[in-house]
Design a protein around this nucleic acid. Structure first.
Ligand SMILES: [Mn+2]
Ligand SMILES: [Mn+2]
Ligand SMILES: [Zn+2]
Ligand SMILES: [Zn+2]
Lengths: 143, 143
DNA sequence: AGTTAGTCAACAATACTTGTTAGTTGACAG
DNA sequence: CTGTCAACTAACAAGTATTGTTGACTAACT
């Protein structure tokens, strides 16, 4: 996503009001690579704006998604996570602590057309699952 | 998953009763590569056993999952899909009709340890998204 | 300074899935 | 063949995540 100031610009240009709630969500997302849920973002925004409603946070997140400023990430059965990183990248999901990490895989992936004629691939998603460094260490210590 | 007869064997060996409901679900799953939802399986079982309850179908599907006979597939916001194919394979999701296809990608994927020290990869999941042959044809015809 | 988009609160509703209860049935062991 | 207990059913509640709705209020922009 763009920096909060640029988002502010964009919202203004689109005739959308720049409210403190919206700016709060911009700030909460900016530089966050933890793939937070709506609730997590709500918690962060509430630190400085205790009256903000979860409903509004959902609203802003959906607006940002519609504008293509952020992506939604659905991995497993957990609530939707939001990803301000919209550049192509992959994910690592820890099976222990459920955290989601941004990674850049070395990948050469291809769906052979001869075997799958007519399939038009628009996007390829790679998800690694396993133990993150923290959890790997703990599970190793417990040998 | 195993063939219905073998599953029957396994259930018996585990001291579980082989009921018509369970066998109905076995049959419904056998050879199905459409990644059906619980409701879809329910519909199929009901054709020959109109009184079977959705609750029981969920029960059996969860049992089979716990036994490692089938896998659950969660892709996007749709209900859980069940996959009797537990051999390593990838998926193609049509963004138009939402169908899920089994595919075998040509893939060399690797998470470089030097950049991600301590990450222990247990599984790598590849998901293609795009248009399936049917939907690609239709969208092409509408040029 | 007026207009109106945005927000809030409070609640309803949706979709999917699991929990629970109590009564009934039928699969299987002896 | 028969008794037992696992499994099933129906009917309903509950849980989780998200969106819809309404009416009143506030404050961002023109
Ligand atoms: Mn990411
Ligand atoms: Mn599959
Ligand atoms: Zn972890
Ligand atoms: Zn399609």
């Amino acid at each position: 996503m763009r920096a909060p100031e640029e988002l502010t610009e964009r919202f203004r240009n689109l005739g959308l009001k720049v409210t403190p709630q919206r700016q709060g969500v911009f700030q909460a997302l900016w530089g966050d690579d933890s793939h937070p849920t709506a609730e997590a973002i709500w918690g962060r925004v509430r630190e400085t704006m205790p009256t903000v409603s979860l409903r509004t946070v959902y609203q802003v997140l959906n607006d940002l998604t519609d504008l293509g400023e952020i992506n939604t990430v659905r991995l497993g059965s957990s609530p939707v996570r939001f990803d301000p990183n919209i550049d192509g990248h992959d994910h690592f999901v820890c099976e222990q602590c459920s955290r989601v990490f941004d990674v850049h895989a070395h990948a050469v992936v291809d769906l052979p057309e001869k075997h799958y004629p007519g399939f038009e691939v628009a996007a390829t998603q790679i998800v690694f699952r396993g133990f993150c460094p923290d959890c790997a260490r703990i599970s190793a210590a417990a040998h």
